[in-house]
Amino acid sequence: MKHSSTAAQVANPLEILLFHLAGIPFGIVVAQVDAMTYPMPDEHGLTIINIPQRLSFPEQEVTYSAARIVWLKGSNSGVMIDNPERMITIDASEIQPLANYLLNRRHPLAYFGAFTTAEDETVLLLDLQGLSATETITETLSMEDEV
């Protein structure tokens, strides 16, 4: 995994981990992550958040080529991501909040906003805390069944 910086000097640096899921470029703030692991079979008692299910992707099935779990700091929740590509450093001011009407209707806290990389790619920045704060019992049970 490479690390690159979008600007030579940043006042409020944020490390971002980039990955794609169903062709959508996502970023997560590394400061929110405790650890990253391979998916393991003994995750009973822990909550694994399935992003496509949580954010209501239109696709019924999303294929993971290299699934990883990123574990949130200070919680028993993890988020399943796919094929972590690289880390970049951006300035916090580069994050543009999404208009209210763009927010996820079921989970409005799921996104910090969006930003553009040096390669001109627009990335949706997930708020892992916001994403996990809205977890539902039904979803947790169905994930445990899958594991």
């Binding site: 959508i24 209501s56 239109p58 208009a99 763009l102 927010l103 996104y111 627009t122 949706l124």
Partner: peptide
């Protein structure tokens, strides 16, 4: 230009796009 789909947004939103550094729906 790629229009990035925003999961969970209303169905009439195609996505977001970067126009000279400003992200537009």
């Amino acid at each position: 230009r790629p229009v990035i789909y925003v999961p969970g947004s209303p169905e009439f939103i195609a996505g977001i796009i970067n126009i000279r550094g400003v992200i537009q729906s």
